[in-house]
Design a binder for these strands. Sequence first.
DNA 1: CCTGTTTTATTACCAAGTAATAGAACTTAA
DNA 2: TTAAGTTCTATTACTTGGTAATAAAACAGG
Lengths: 189, 189
Amino acid sequence: MMARSQKKQRHDALREKLNSSPFLTDEVLAGQLGVSVQTIRLDRLEMGIPEVRERTKQMAEEARAKLKAIGSRDVIGDLIDLELGKSGISVMTVTGDMVMEKNRIAHGHFIFAQANSLALAVLDAPVAVTGVANIKYKVPVHIGEKLIAKAEIVKKRGNKYFVWVKTRNDQHEVFRSKFILVSFDGEGR
Amino acid sequence: MMARSQKKQRHDALREKLNSSPFLTDEVLAGQLGVSVQTIRLDRLEMGIPEVRERTKQMAEEARAKLKAIGSRDVIGDLIDLELGKSGISVMTVTGDMVMEKNRIAHGHFIFAQANSLALAVLDAPVAVTGVANIKYKVPVHIGEKLIAKAEIVKKRGNKYFVWVKTRNDQHEVFRSKFILVSFDGEGR
DNA sequence: CCTGTTTTATTACCAAGTAATAGAACTTAA
DNA sequence: TTAAGTTCTATTACTTGGTAATAAAACAGG
């Protein structure tokens, strides 16, 4: 039963090699693993791994889609309800790349970003920026949680808008913030 | 001189097509542009565009590198100085994907993110999260600006740390924030 | 009509495969 | 030891999407 275990080992090695550098041809792989090209092909067939060209293409498409998704997030979270000049609701699901590596807790700035961009979206003004924010994180947020942020304009004075945003997950209010936003036609802040 | 201008047009069309979908083979391109495969090949040669396989590979590698860079930003900005438990400095250059489309001003949450992660980095504690933040945006920030954030721990009470972060560009202080961070071994916030 | 550019066609060749088939080598169990 | 089974290797024919080189056709302008 030596042969069988050697095969398994080789399969693992192959998987690992392709994982770290997916652009290796069968010929190169054969050389590195000390077997014939045909053996590599057989292995790939058994393991359901496509050829280099296919792998490369898949990688390119995947990475492209991901980058595109990342690029198009001017408003963070999905705006699901909006009464311009009054209130709005946005939903965001916490994904793997929002959490800190150390403790798997969501990085605060994503929660802030959702609230901040919602606050800006609610404003009935063409151009506005954030002036002041008072924020409080109440409960740590983890991967997979769905965050619902509700914004409400509570006051307006001149070109200054006072907006409160409360964010909750299923159970708790996890975050609470007060923004002062400044709309400006010319310049000012 | 009709012929020459037709060629130029075709080159432009080719460039555009490949820009939006880089995985087209010469054969498909030839069909879409109504010319022979050889013409496409000649065009590519003239224009210095490599074959599909090469293009795909380049794309894959590029996109991969980009994604990797994005993924590894637990601390946003570059930590250039750090006295653990006391103070720290971080530098971040505002890139194109940090600004809002509408007004080309940096989205507030990137500036916040730099300050927040710097504040956390300065803490001499294994695990910590943000509890409260009071922040003020003083001057709008634009693409290309280099932001220098300086953090300082001003007080410690129990497991609560009070940290001030001031961010400036070349000329002004653009942002100012006070954080209360909570370090925790077990649980708590 | 001739000339020069542009386009197309043809041929030989390559890399990195798939698919199928056959043979060698090693392993083991009877 | 030998037969059987698994695993590995080799060989051959064929495919895609090209490169490189050469020649011929089409067309436009003078």
